[in-house]
């Protein structure tokens, strides 16, 4: 089991969510991910404001009086015994990213398609690793955006 999981993920790059940046001009949020192996390049995903806030709450380990949507999904998992194994950013078309969530329950594995925002918001709550395929990593937009991002953050600060 362990070996198989390793093989399945060896062509993937593991990512860590670094921060959530507010783009106040468009009321969107930018999820900034970095390579878990210490590489310096960023991977950025644009999400809606409520999706961005859901990810920020998980990063901050914020406790809300009532469960928010992704807390509810986590709660379903806890009740039913479903484990979130990992999340993979599997495709990009134009500037739209696609993700797959790998779930497991008593040896039964299932995958579901998801928006990266939902996948990441759930992964952070379940301490599941986040990966990107080599192909999507190469095709990521934003190589030239690091400068722009720092400008945006400076403006906010």
């Amino acid at each position: 089991m362990e070996t198989r999981a390793t093989q399945e993920t060896e062509s993937l790059i593991q990512l860590t969510v670094d921060r959530v940046v507010e783009d106040s001009n468009t009321d969107t949020r930018i999820i900034v991910l970095v390579r878990s192996d210490g590489g310096t390049d960023h991977f950025m995903v644009w999400v809606g404001s409520s999706e961005g806030e859901a990810i920020k709450r998980a990063l901050d380990a914020a406790v809300t009086p009532r469960p928010m949507s992704h807390d509810l999904v986590k709660s379903f998992g806890e009740h039913l015994g479903i484990k979130t194994d990992r999340v993979v950013l599997t495709d990009v078309k134009g500037s739209t990213y696609y993700a797959t969530v790998f779930l497991e329950n008593k040896g039964v594995a299932r995958t579901i398609d998801a928006r990266p925002s939902d996948a990441i918001a759930l992964a952070l709550r379940c301490q599941a690793p986040i990966y990107v395929t080599q192909d999507v990593w190469k095709r990521r937009s934003g190589q030239n955006l690091d400068a722009w991002l720092s400008k945006l953050e400076t403006k906010e600060a």
Binding site: A54, F76, L80, L103, R110, T111, A114, R115
Partner: peptide, 18 residues
């Protein structure tokens, strides 16, 4: 065009026939 969070929630449950 893209599944919303509650569609994702339903997919999650559907995946295991809950």
């Amino acid at each position: 065009p893209r599944p919303m969070t509650h569609d994702f929630m339903k997919s999650y449950l559907d995946a295991f026939d809950a």
